[in-house]
Design a protein around this nucleic acid. Structure first.
Lengths: 192, 192, 192, 192
DNA sequence: AATGAATGAGAATTCATTCAT
DNA sequence: AATGAATGAATTCTCATTCAT
């Protein structure tokens, strides 16, 4: 049975979905093959192995964020307020619909101390994310306060994701977003 | 070879340590046996299997919290302020020195969907924790605000743990604790 | 917790029951201990091990047959016809209520080629049984015909037990008994 | 090491042989792998596990019977007498040379209550066998007598197999076959 | 005698990976 | 590229047996 050419990105997508659903360790190459419609052996034409595939997934999400989210900070036409609202809106879209965000939280925690290369990649992602948020805050607040706020915001979102996962309740994230926005508004009004 | 009696709690402790170090999936029964000095087979005397042992670990941590932490809310001689300070101090002690706290975050996320029974146990733990914090807040704030604040506080701590884990930086948690305390102070001064 | 003195025959009975229920291989020493109310280790005070216990079971059944069944052939006051009826009645009682008979069929087949000592014991039992039946037949028929009939009768009963087991239908055995008796009646009327 | 393609039927055959030799419980997957020349793990490519493999063995024997034996009843060119002789000849060939027959007796009894699915399969086999024999008898005898005779014949063969197994004596089966044939002859002559 | 913890030798099974076709 | 059989190491779990108390 000849098969269509397989886009490696298709495999990455499938892998992302199953990793999220079952966790990294609980997911077998057979599961991934199954999801893609390929057979186990065929995966090895595209990726060196499970770790390699995992790295591609992390990388893919990171790249997507770089392209779609972290660019918000550079939107010339957006006010700071608009940027923050855009970031929040994107975050909600991601966590509720795409789940790439959960991946970076859940799978990161699961694999953090398992493979050092994963750790580095997760850190790079979060550094970029923090940097993006900080850059926006820095339009209004002094450098070190912006830095602080960025760390705090991401941390708050991460906590909300954990609770959301645990209790299956999206409100945790909604409320976190709201708090972040309100804090920005009240602080920036003071600053002005 | 003499047959030492083994306290099952010893096994639970060993398991807790290795689960924390290597993660649940990455830990084999042989690892645990090794840590306890028993042979693999002997573990099955005390626990039906890996899942059962895991449940014992979760339960043991939960019980410890119930005994040592969640009772803080009932300390007759403590003011609300003192209770919150005590909770924070305990939290810091736990997360920095005992690592049982991280377990409830990291291993929870890794195993949340592995077995429904785990999910239930983790949820029970967090419900109890939230309930404890809420009870303290309720001494000063109205019921629903106390509830909100409790959820927010735990969520914030969870986020800090994720970041702390990720970047190996305890300051995340320290700052989260500080924020929680300050928020309490400023809100309660308003209330009064 | 001190326990009453344990009669080894109690253990043998329990073992018989579980062997029958679960088969020899599928039964663990723990199962037997459980049934007797003892703990695993205690069984080894009475029997050298599983094989030894099994031999005691086989032996016990054999002895019981020797005492209760195979003596029928020597009943001075019974006619041949009465002896055959008594044997059949006993057989029915055994297979339907005591199940010792099934043991000698089912467990024999399961363990026949597993432990040579079992084989010898099962053979001895069946030789005795055949001998008993033959002795009765020999009251009426010539030696070699009696021998033939005995083998055939036992064989028929064994077949019926297999079918009974397979289809959970006691009628197989009832009909086999009926055939055996009728055959005896018709043959002996001819002989006279 | 070159990777030979293995016909799953080869595995089934090997399994059949070892199951017969050592019994189901006493046979390990390693034994089977060893017999086939594969490694343990490789067996799981073809069969989900030991039970699954066992089912394939039972099924394979059943299918073989359906194809080679149970079709005898439909041989247009055979008289009833010839059909019975053919069935008997086949039975002898099977039990003496192929051993698949013993499987359906010995292993059936050993595994009857291990897994309900086995029970169902063994019953299906025996029902088919009985049906085949009954159909042949029904050419000469009334329906219900044919049914009775079929049950009796199979039961008799089963008993003979037990005795044959027990005493390692093929004569039991030979005599059972002879009896079955003679009974048919004498009854059918009466009927005519 | 009884206990029950400990042993240790396997058992079945899983799975990432390799490789001939 | 894709296939899918084969590999082999690792993993969970079982169980007859031993032994200190």
């Amino acid at each position: 049975m000849p098969k269509q050419k397989t886009d490696p990105q298709e495999i990455v997508k499938s892998a992302l979905n199953i990793f999220l659903e079952k966790g990294y360790h609980n997911t077998s190459m057979a599961d991934i093959a199954n999801e893609t419609g390929l057979l186990k052996g065929s995966l090895y034409h595209h990726f060196k192995g499970k770790e390699d595939l995992m790295k591609a997934v992390i990388s893919s999400i990171h790249e997507w964020y770089k392209r779609e989210i972290f660019t918000i900070k550079d939107e010339k036409t957006f006010s700071t307020d608009q940027k923050i609202q855009a970031l929040i809106k994107a975050s909600e879209e991601i966590f509720f619909n795409r789940r790439g965000g959960n991946f970076m939280t859940n799978i990161a925690l699961e694999t953090l101390n398992v493979v050092p290369e994963f750790t580095a990649m997760f850190r790079a992602f979060f550094r970029d994310w923090i940097h993006c948020v900080k850059t926006v805050y820095a339009e209004v607040f002094p450098e070190d306060e912006a830095e602080q706020l960025a760390h705090q915001s991401i941390s708050e979102i991460e906590g909300a994701v954990v609770m959301m996962e645990l209790f299956n309740d999206k409100n945790y994230l909604r409320r976190a977003h709201k708090r972040i926005y309100n804090r920005f508004k009240s602080l920036s009004s003071v600053t002005k």
